[in-house]
Design a protein around this nucleic acid. Structure first.
Lengths: 124, 124
DNA sequence: CATTGCTTTAGAGTGCGCTCGAACGTGTAG
DNA sequence: CTACACGTTCGAGCGCACTCTAAAGCAATG
């Protein structure tokens, strides 16, 4: 029998607040979180893994609307695997571009820092 | 005598809308944009360079409040160069971390894609 | 069996970064 | 002179992603 978690535990593990976890469930990012007899949520290991993946999508700037699309495909079962892969590959490209752009911007920032250093030297 | 630009030209060059350019000026990110006799903005080359740098800060997720701080230091002249450098160095660290995080997340996304591919193979 | 602290829901509120609209002035082509 | 495109200001509105509140129920401790 696999471990179960309360909303607070999931909150601590993932860093999302309980509010955000309920919100994600409400908008359909988390499907079918189980409940105990009194209606309290009990998260399974699989929920945790899914939430962790959602966090990665969010950190790579996937909009919630797209995360929702992806979640919807997921809950439709294995018939949608190809479609999910396509969606992820499109996102992969965007992330790759983000990294390239950040690197370019980082260079410019570093140049500016170097420029400031030079100006500081002059004034000694 | 250096070239001057209308707000529409700056908009086309930078990709910011005229609305956004006015907004940035209003909140103090753009200091002292010149005007012609009838009150129309005329941007100089130096304004353009500054706007481009602001865009880089924005693309690297610097919040507007921090961009404002930086702008304010800038308009106080060369006495603030050291402070500006410090601010940029802090930001540089954040950007470096962003890149590392994105790379890690990209890996996980790629693993998921590979996993989907494997599942697709199974079903042939 | 009372207190304290956790859970639930629905719905309202917030902060960020724009984005737009209204009302009005300017510049230029026919 | 008349369109009509482009400029101005001020303030309101918007989309996103949470974030919080209120009112109520459940759980654990002394």
């Amino acid at each position: 029998m696999s471990k179960q978690f309360t909303i607070q535990q999931i909150s601590q593990i993932t860093g999302l607040t309980a509010h955000t976890l309920r919100y994600y469930e409400k908008i359909g990012l988390l499907d079918g979180v189980a409940r105990n007899e009194s209606g309290y949520r009990k998260y399974r290991e699989s929920d945790l893994l899914w939430i962790d993946f959602l966090i990665r999508l969010r950190e790579t700037r996937m909009p919630i609307s797209e995360m929702k699309q992806f979640s919807d495909l997921r809950s439709q079962g294995k018939a949608t695997i190809k479609e999910r892969r396509t969606l992820l590959e499109r996102h992969q490209n965007k992330v790759t571009k983000q990294i390239a752009d950040l690197k370019e911007n980082l260079l410019k920032i570093e140049h500016k820092i170097a420029h400031y250093k030079a100006l500081e030297e002059e004034d000694i």
